[in-house]
Nucleic acid binder design. Structure first.
Lengths: 336, 336
DNA sequence: TTGAAAGCGTTACCAG
DNA sequence: CTGGTAACGCTTTCAA
């Protein structure tokens, strides 16, 4: 790799002092116009770029943020990252993206990796395994801005998430209004606030409508295609199988859908289904799936904004909820 | 942000010289065992981390790579990035991911952004607009390792891509064997090598089987949902509409599929379809879509490996092809 | 208007 | 075995 040219190189070539070059390039007073022009010209022709590492050393600032997501190959997370990165770049920030693979250990490693890099702020979407938050609280002690998003937990830092309780409630109400009597809930591990909230909304709707809550219809397992598949198959094997399913994660929605189809059952006649999931898949399925649509762009932009404010010194802890809303398609009864 | 502690801090606390601390921490000879132990202990309790920026300054090396993709919210690219990042982190490299939004101007900006960051290598998946490669050739002049992937172009650097010609050929042969007589091709802009190659494979198959090549069935437009939709609708409006479609990009496959369905046509009876696309969507569609499956993990890992080798000084230009293969489902005739 | 020097964190080299 | 110092690229303060 060719060595890049420095202010010193320019100074030498022009037989002036580095400090003069620095002033000239920064547009500071104290350089004659002709000399300044000459310096700038040479800098441009030689392709001078300020060395951000020297800058970092000097100012103890890195202009870099870190992001941790559970799985970049899952559209939902990647889509949010896209907008975090876009906003960051607009403000001149680098964005180091890391993938925890939905594992706690790896999440800790990612944070460690980012700390080593001296990022100025970190945005995290928790892994489904995470129940210990010391690696995050540690950030607070070190005064490193932190924003949780999507899968959050209340540890006293800013967060951005969907209105999980209410959107799940709305979805469940929609199923009830369509005539479902035995609505199953498919969620992630029970320690995840996201799962708890969505389950909460589900239960709330049932209570509101005076429906019986059946524990056996509530399945909370690790988020994975296989667990979604087997949970759904078990549900369908019951003496009294559910006539509707609310899947609280995209993967679970996909696997539940396929389980239903594999049984030769008709959607929504035999079993209706609603998923928290992304547009493409829900549009392409047959029948098209009713889904809870989240505004991923808004989430991503807001995450960076909160992070940025914190990095600028704003100490306030803000909890932002981005409204998701139900898009009704044919996997439920869209003729109500 | 709390100032992190440095070797100097440790040295001061222990009343020794920084250079001694440095040696102790690096495990170099020239420090008494007791002193070394004391230094290490203090470093640990104080939470010392080497400052990578000081390191970068010292060695003119950054341990950072950059990635440019057209659209992180599109699963295909995000999935590749996931594995580039994973491999990079394994080797202690930071991975700065940027999203060009499939725009040439933005791609140039991304490269610029990465160069400012002094990344040691860059992996690029070209935007569909890119026809001018000076921003990439410039990297060669500056001796910055470059690997192109997925959407590549031959400018004398290492590349990783799918066997586009042959997989398109295989897909087309499959359509022909299923009885299709008028096979349409849906591709991206004509300057994209990926489109050219896939079209080439398509034409090769037609010629092989002695079929007439109909120019009006070949549609190359910008890659977007809307263009795929309107191109397909126009095809279906023809006096002699196609009885099969080969869609050379995931978005085009999705939009073509929906266009066909919106016309009330039956897949594959009226129109068969094969797409270059990702697993989830093709599994969830009805009927499940026959698709060209790429090994995205292998692509991502290989990209980093090539980049890494170059960063280690390997000058060889390597062109890797990762075999994709046809997964036959019900959007074509899977009973052949 | 310009130059010289110190400092950011680290390492390498040379002296003691 | 340990200390001092220069160097990496840049900015800032002070002196000329």
């Amino acid at each position: 790799m060719k060595k890049s040219i420095s202010q010193r190189d320019i100074a030498k070539a022009l037989n002036v002092n580095v400090s003069t070059v620095s002033r000239a390039l920064k547009g500071q007073p104290g350089v004659s116009d002709e000399l300044r022009e000459e310096i700038i010209r040479l800098a441009e022709t030689k392709g001078y770029r300020p060395n951000p590492f020297a800058m970092s050393l000097r100012y103890d600032t890195t202009h870099t943020i870190g992001v941790v997501v559970p799985d970049m190959s899952f559209n939902h997370y990647a889509h949010i990252v896209k907008w975090i990165e876009a906003e960051a770049r607009k403000k001149g920030y680098m964005c180091v993206v890391t993938d925890s693979g939905d594992k706690y250990n790896s999440e800790v490693e990612c944070i460690e990796h980012l700390l080593n890099m001296r990022v100025e702020g970190i945005a995290v979407c928790l892994s489904q395994e995470t129940v210990d938050y010391t690696h995050l609280k540690q950030l607070k002690d070190r005064n490193i801005p932190l924003v949780l998003f999507d899968r959050i937990v209340d540890i006293g830092c800013s967060m951005v998430s969907a209105n999980d309780v209410d959107s799940a409630r709305q979805a469940t109400l929609h199923l009830i209004e369509g005539g479902a009597h035995r609505i199953a809930f498919l969620g992630g591990p029970n320690q995840m606030k996201q799962t708890i909230d969505r389950k909460h909304g589900y239960l709330e709707a049932l209570r509101e409508r005076g429906m019986v809550i059946r524990k056996e219809l509530v399945r909370c397992s690790p988020v994975s295609f296989n667990s979604g598949l087997s949970d759904t198959l078990e549900l369908l094997n019951m003496k009294n199988p559910p006539d509707a399913i609310l899947a609280a994660h995209g993967l679970l929605a996909i696997s539940a859908f396929q389980a239903i189809v594999s049984r030769g059952l008709c959607i929504p006649k035999d079993v209706a289904i609603i998923g928290f999931m992304s547009d493409w898949v829900s549009t392409m399925s047959y029948p098209p799936m009713t889904f809870v649509k989240q505004n991923l762009k808004e989430i991503g932009c807001k995450v960076f904004k909160l992070l940025f404010n914190q990095m600028e010194g704003d100490e306030s802890v803000i909890n932002v909820t981005i409204n998701a809303r139900l898009n009704v398609r044919e996997s439920t009864w869209n003729n109500l």
